[in-house]
Design a protein around this nucleic acid. Structure first.
Lengths: 156, 156
DNA sequence: AGAGAGTCCGTTATAACATATCAATCCCGG
DNA sequence: CCGGGATTGATATGTTATAACGGACTCTCT
């Protein structure tokens, strides 16, 4: 699984692919991919950047799709719960999933300069940390792995 | 480096040791370990639980040590910057460092039931994730690794 | 001693992020 | 057509964090 986000790519295609994968996924799972939810995912997809709920809200409001915080938060909860987006704890922000459809344990590389976020895969549970958790008798239910630093462009 | 937090231990001793290590550390580094800062660390040490800034504030206020948010946040910033405490992003909360004095890359095991937090060591940079970051040309400056789950007591 | 720099603290106000609650609507199966 | 479940709309509020400014203290240099 490769790291997405810092490389240039055909972004229109990237958006279109992800949306149609999302459509298919929701149809399969019997999930209601409503206009609000779909539009929030589109907005997130517009850039590989994390966006706060209050960054998304005005766009949504302009389009008459709900202008109060709960609307966005509910949509984001839906997307996160169903693996279509991720929450970045370090930024209190949200980003579209870059590995839609594939099971993964996401880790995030966050550029502190340009705010771009790349999604990588963290095979933590097998490492030394997984051992530490087992030794402590700790049952892992959710992992948050976020690395802050500089992307190649900003480091140069 | 062992995982601390889920095992019972002599807690008064644990607090006293940590405070005196902190005193020594600040003296060495020429840091001003002021009453507010010291008291905030003490409050954090009282439990191996993460506390929000607004949990700490009333105690501080009762003692006449500052009753407004910035006072606590400044003290917490000091403690975090100097490695005496850590911020838990998943909880928007803070916890005293359990491995004071030893260099470490902390990872946290957070019990969703009893809110106890244990500190372990994450040797991430050498694993598959470190490779992914290198491949992406990403320079890691800060790591956040937090695992949510159940501690042994709550799992039983 | 006095001037100036640096650090910390107290205070007010406000920004940024998130959720509780309840009513209204929509949609689908029975 | 009706009832139940999910979604949305709207109001209000809760929680976490920071901006901005002034005063107090200490240290150093002259």
């Amino acid at each position: 699984m490769s790291t997405i986000g810092f490389h240039s790519h055909n972004h229109d295609q990237c958006i279109a692919d992800t949306l149609s994968t999302a459509d298919a996924h929701c149809a399969e799972e019997g999930l209601q991919f409503t206009p609000v939810r779909r539009r929030v995912l589109e907005i997130l997809l517009a850039e590989h950047k994390a966006m706060g709920a209050y960054d998304i809200l005005p766009t949504l409001a302009d389009e008459g799709l709900g202008s109060q915080p709960p609307v966005v938060y509910r949509a984001l909860d839906f997307l996160v719960k169903n693996g279509l987006a991720h929450r970045i704890e370090l930024l209190n922000a949200y980003i579209a999933c870059a590995h839609l459809g594939r099971a993964h344990r996401p880790a995030f590389l966050i550029c502190r300069e340009c705010k771009l976020v790349a999604e990588a895969d963290a095979e933590l549970a097998r490492g030394r940390l997984g051992e530490a958790a087992r030794e402590a008798g700790f049952t892992i239910e959710r992992m948050v792995v976020e690395l802050e630093g500089l992307c190649p462009a900003c480091a140069a």
